[in-house]
């Protein structure tokens, strides 16, 4: 369970987060939605401690991640898997090595075990035979899937997705959405998806949290989302539905 309380953050005088509150329950899939520049990616980076808030707290399983030592923070982070926007694969390593990296770094697995887990993870993202390819040889969608395989290699309890479908064609987007859903079901993880893609939200999320103007404007289930009469939320949802042609 992750709980964000009264989070404030500004960059060079510009306030990005102005008191965000959010609770993420075990096992659910939460979509954090909002316009570009509304601060949802910044919020996500706070959740794993990549950014420190100006004020407010982030509790992960009851521990305030900004009040623990760097070493403890790092061990908390090992419970997270993060899929970055561009995949963020290490371009000095091939796909196999990328997925194997967290296993080799944080576990004492034998090389054959590592091999087994890596192939299993690559199989999960339906790319069992790209192991020898370098990230630059892969398409954007494939890079994201390999990155996802890397994110789940350590069997995390939380997976954070930063714009998982942005920049991808609708078909690839659907594939990614399916993967997210499958992972949530198979591994029973808590998923936090930062996105502005309403289509994807409707496909995968249990709940949605709408960030607007640096605040948590609205939270609720997907069913509530449709029923909401909130003007700002409605115009955001409508604009997105129009854009993707639903």
């Amino acid at each position: 369970m992750i709980s964000v309380k009264n989070l404030y953050k500004s960059f060079s005088g510009k306030e990005v987060l102005k008191g965000v509150d959010l609770d993420i329950l075990e096992g659910e899939t939460l979509a954090i939605i909002g316009r570009s520049g509304s601060g949802k990616s910044v919020l996500m980076k706070h959740i794993i401690g990549l950014l420190q808030p100006d004020s407010g707290s982030i509790m992960v399983d009851g521990v305030d991640i900004n009040k623990v030592s760097y070493a403890d923070l790092r061990s908390i982070r090992q419970h997270f898997g993060v899929l970055f926007q561009g995949g963020a694969l290490f371009d000095s390593m091939n796909s196999f090595e990328n997925v194997a990296f967290p296993l080799r770094t944080f576990t004492s697995m034998s090389e054959s075990e590592v091999q087994r887990v890596v192939l299993e993870c690559l199989g999960m993202v339906e790319l069992p035979d790209v192991g020898a390819k370098m990230p630059s040889e892969l398409s954007g969608g494939m890079q994201k899937r390999v990155a996802l395989a890397r994110a789940v290699a350590l069997k995390p309890r939380y997976i954070l997705y930063d714009e998982p479908t942005s920049g991808l064609d609708p078909e690839t987007s659907n594939t990614i959405d399916e993967l997210i859903q499958n992972l949530a079901d198979q591994l029973n993880v808590t998923s936090i998806v930062v996105t502005h893609d309403m289509h994807s939200v409707l496909n995968i999320a249990d709940k949605a949290a709408f960030v607007h103007d640096g605040r948590m404007h609205w939270t609720g289930t997907i069913a509530d989302l449709h029923a909401s009469t909130d003007q700002v939320l409605r115009s955001f949802v409508k604009a997105n539905e129009y854009q993707i042609g639903v």
Partner: peptide, 18 residues
Amino acid sequence: GTMRVTEQIDALEAMGLN
């Protein structure tokens, strides 16, 4: 610099690496 702007450094940190 490239690792920073392509979030590879963030990825390392997020994994729990120093």
